[in-house]
């Protein structure tokens, strides 16, 4: 069976059990969950809420999208009945937080440019079971960092 469209893909993920625990594979295939765009405050900082729902062993959202590089504040909720943690990318050092059952915390990150970065719960094999997510930074590098040449084709 193959898939050819986004709608088909979501249905197929569910039908094959790739988007839940212990149905298709043992865990959940990473980043098969929700996607959410971070909200931007007037001062340019961005904000998003991140949850671990009961028995999903996955991030919700699994993909966080920042409209541009800068500072991101994350509110984290562990609604699961097990203990997890979070390790986020950030300039200076990676940010770590321990998340016991039914806890909430926060993280302040700085990500400076376009591309995507992984975050995870680095305990046991949370990462392989599904607690690996992505932070996508949109936008371009500053104008002064771009090559002096005519616009070039992209894929």
């Amino acid at each position: 069976m193959t898939t050819s469209s986004a709608q088909d893909r979501a249905e197929l993920l569910h039908k094959l059990g790739l988007d839940t625990q212990n149905k298709g594979p043992i865990g959940r295939v990473i980043t098969t969950g929700n996607i959410e765009q971070a909200k931007e405050h007037e001062d340019g900082t961005m904000h998003v809420r991140l949850r671990i729902n009961p028995d999903e062993i996955a991030w919700d959202p699994a993909v966080i999208v920042m409209p541009h590089g800068g500072d991101l504040e994350i509110e984290i909720f562990n609604d699961d009945l097990n203990t997890h943690c979070a390790l986020f990318p950030s300039n200076g050092d990676r940010k770590f937080i321990w998340l016991v059952n039914h806890s909430r915390g926060r993280a302040k990150l700085n990500l400076d440019g376009p591309g995507y970065y992984w975050f995870s719960s680095p305990t046991g094999n949370d990462e392989g079971r599904g607690l690996t997510g992505a932070i996508v930074v949109l936008g371009d590098v500053p104008p002064e960092a771009r090559l002096d040449r005519p616009e070039q084709p992209r894929p």
Binding site: R94, K95, F96, I97, W98, S103, A107, K108
Partner: peptide
């Protein structure tokens, strides 16, 4: 409603080295 445990703010991973 059960209050969340306050996990605080994420710290530099290097602080745990």
């Amino acid at each position: 409603t059960v209050e969340y445990v306050d996990a605080g703010e994420a710290i530099d991973q290097g602080d745990l080295s």
